[in-house]
Design a protein around this nucleic acid. Structure first.
Lengths: 194, 194
DNA sequence: CTCTATCTTGAATGTTTATTCAAGATACTC
DNA sequence: GAGTATCTTGAATAAACATTCAAGATAGAG
């Protein structure tokens, strides 16, 4: 017997970054070898093929983002404050301009959705989970009387998520810190006041 | 002497759609041959190579979008009404779920920005032009006293554009007509009221 | 320490792809 | 109507790529 030498999580995070950096199609096996330190044969042994590595990386991404979500929202604190911090975190990611900080789900959705139904289904499921979690936070905020408007948690969360999508895309052309912060603040205040 | 047989605009629009459909990398010369009706040799003669065809298609896209903008905003009518119609048009494009209705600039930006500086520069220039045009419309709305809030035309236009980005991405996972309309309405009312 | 099951390696394979080019077709000029 | 410049065609080319596989390396069992 003998165990695999590589650290699965590290390999998957490296692959994630490589895919976010160049996109799936343009990331060659050579790039993946360089990024993960695994030779082609090992990749095929562990993940079947390039697409399998993407699927595994998407799984890891889901885990990582779920943990991040916990970090922001598990405490018993005002939900609006937590949402604001979360939004600020997104803005920081946008400003950093590092490929590793992009959202793999959106990147993959843009590139692969129309060509691979299985990948698309996984992406949509992940994103839908995320939306549901955000909606839960808004529900708590409403239950706590932090928000008193007419809009439902579902409506608020959809608008919030649309805003995050918008921020991420906006940063691709004009990632200036002041502009990004201003946009996030407009978004947030629009959600609070009615 | 002899003139080319193909219709340049038609060819470029076909290429645009092909690129929006599959993305640049995954659109093969065979796909382009099928889409445009031009054989590889002709494409290389007319546009130098695949990348040249993309650049030409981006030029045509710019023209087409500029014309569309004229159509929406050239008349002497309340600017807020025109903006609302414009937003509605974007929503219709989102709902249609047809690749041909996506925004080539955003698609290309997502796929190519980090790998091709020249393409990136062209995309950012096009998008910046668009932003400037939208800002002009908001300036007119303010001058006409249609809007009386504190936010500047620049701020309003940035938020509007962020919203459009958000709508487009949102539709990729959940392109339901009612949800999309509701999001657009929230966005628009947030811009009007202060 | 030896054996073996398993992992690692990287060159070889076969496919796909962008690109080229020479032969053929066609419209315009004189 | 002949000549020619230009366009069109699609098979040939060469590079890039994902994938395979057999030889080599290594950790754990006995």
């Amino acid at each position: 017997m003998r165990n695999a030498e590589f650290d699965r999580e590290k390999v998957l995070r490296s692959a994630m970054i490589a895919f976010m950096d160049k996109g799936y199609a343009k990331t060659s096996m050579q790039d993946l070898k360089a990024a993960t330190g695994l030779h082609p044969g090992s990749i095929y042994c562990a993940f079947e093929n390039k697409r399998g590595l993407l699927l595994a990386a998407l799984g890891q991404y889901r885990e990582d983002r779920a943990q991040e979500f916990q970090h922001f929202f598990s405490a018993e604190r005002p939900k609006l404050v937590q949402l604001k911090n979360y939004l600020e975190h997104v803005v920081q990611e946008c400003i950093s301009c590092q490929a590793a900080q992009a959202c793999l789900l959106i990147k993959a959705l843009n590139e692969l959705a129309e060509q691979d139904d299985e990948v698309q289904a996984i992406l949509i499921e992940n994103i839908t989970n995320w939306q549901t979690s955000i909606e839960g936070v808004f529900s708590q905020a409403i239950a706590n009387k932090e928000l008193v408007g007419e809009r439902s948690a579902a409506q608020l969360s959809r608008f919030f998520i649309m805003g995050i999508y918008g921020l991420r895309t906006y940063a691709q052309t004009h990632p200036q810190a002041d502009v990004m912060h201003e946009l996030a603040e407009q978004l947030f205040s629009d959600l609070c006041q009615e």
